[in-house]
Simulated assay, not measured.
Amino acid sequence: MHSIERHVDPATYRKVVGRFATGVAIVTTRLGDVDHAMTINSFTSVSLDPLLVLFCAEKVARFHDAVLESGVWGVSVLPASMEDASRFFAHRGRPLNGQLATWPHHRGESGVALFDDALATLECATTAVHDGGDHSIVVGGVTAIDTPSDGAPLLYHKGRYKSL
């Protein structure tokens, strides 16, 4: 590994990487009787054999410790019609109790919440966690998939929500 010297302004870096359009999803986990959820745009397919995906969780987010402890998580890929949910689950410090009540959802086989209006859902079991600076890169084996609805995807580009 090479050490990384910083020659790049973080604010400029954010603008540059913000030009890469991403999909938006909500990742969920359940620890005990408590649901945890967080908006992400750092989600990607990793491997077809075995089936692996990853997302990145900020280490200071309460979701981070919950998902690492539970070992299972769900991903709901959002349609443009769920921008309100994306904004809500991106907000820090919201109450945990009842946070899912506004949006129709169901429990997957692993017990995690999956949004009924999602374009796609995946259930995953954590297989590896890698250090990613101020984030952890959480890799999971896919245990279940579905395509509950159809429609335009919610996208994020240049610091704004967009759709196709």
Results as ranks from 00 to 15, higher is better:
E5W: 00
D9R: 01
D9G: 07
R14V: 13
K15L: 14
V16Y: 01
V16A: 15
T22S: 13
G23K: 04
G23L: 03
I26L: 10
I26R: 13
V27M: 04
T28G: 12
T28L: 07
T29L: 09
D33V: 08
D33L: 06
D33P: 01
D35E: 15
A37I: 01
F43C: 07
V46F: 03
S47Q: 10
D49G: 05
D49E: 14
L52Y: 06
L54Y: 03
F55D: 03
C56F: 04
A57T: 12
V60Y: 02
V60A: 15
A61E: 09
R62W: 11
D65F: 00
L68W: 01
W73K: 00
G74D: 13
L78Y: 02
S81L: 10
E83I: 03
R87G: 10
F88V: 08
F89H: 02
G93N: 14
R94L: 14
P95K: 09
G98R: 11
Q99H: 14
L100V: 06
T102V: 08
P104T: 05
H105M: 06
H105N: 14
G108K: 02
E109P: 01
S110F: 00
S110H: 08
A113S: 12
L114F: 03
F115K: 10
L119P: 06
A120V: 05
L122K: 00
E123L: 01
T127K: 04
A128S: 13
V129D: 10
D131A: 14
G132Y: 03
G133M: 09
H135S: 07
H135V: 11
S136I: 05
G140H: 04
G141K: 10
G141S: 14
G141D: 06
V142A: 12
D146R: 08
T147Y: 07
S149G: 01
G151Y: 07
A152C: 00
H157F: 15
K158T: 10
G159Q: 02
K162G: 03
K162H: 12
L164W: 11
